[in-house]
Amino acid sequence: MPKIFMPLVINNPQPSQRIVIDPLTRIEGHLRLEAQVENGQVAEAWSAAMMFRGLEIILKGRDPRDAWVFTQRICGV
């Protein structure tokens, strides 16, 4: 099993703190946000899409006329 990328929530006392929001709701898809907070300012931030289906791989070798039916399912919103 591959190693799972999973940064830890560091509960350091102020002034340095790592904030993790996962899942981020009210959006389509599964998004994870992390922010490194230094002295009350966001010093660095990362976002990660937490879901993968591999549609590019699935599309290979198929009838090109079907491509729209597949790619339309990337997002139903």
């Binding site: 591959p2 799972i4 996962d22 899942p23 937490m50 993968f52």
Partner: peptide, 16 residues
């Protein structure tokens, strides 16, 4: 939505 089972399920993670 479907449930991924390959590679320990890493392809859909929610709240870790």
């Amino acid at each position: 939505g479907s449930i991924p089972t390959a590679d320990g399920g890493v392809y859909a993670m929610i709240g870790g």
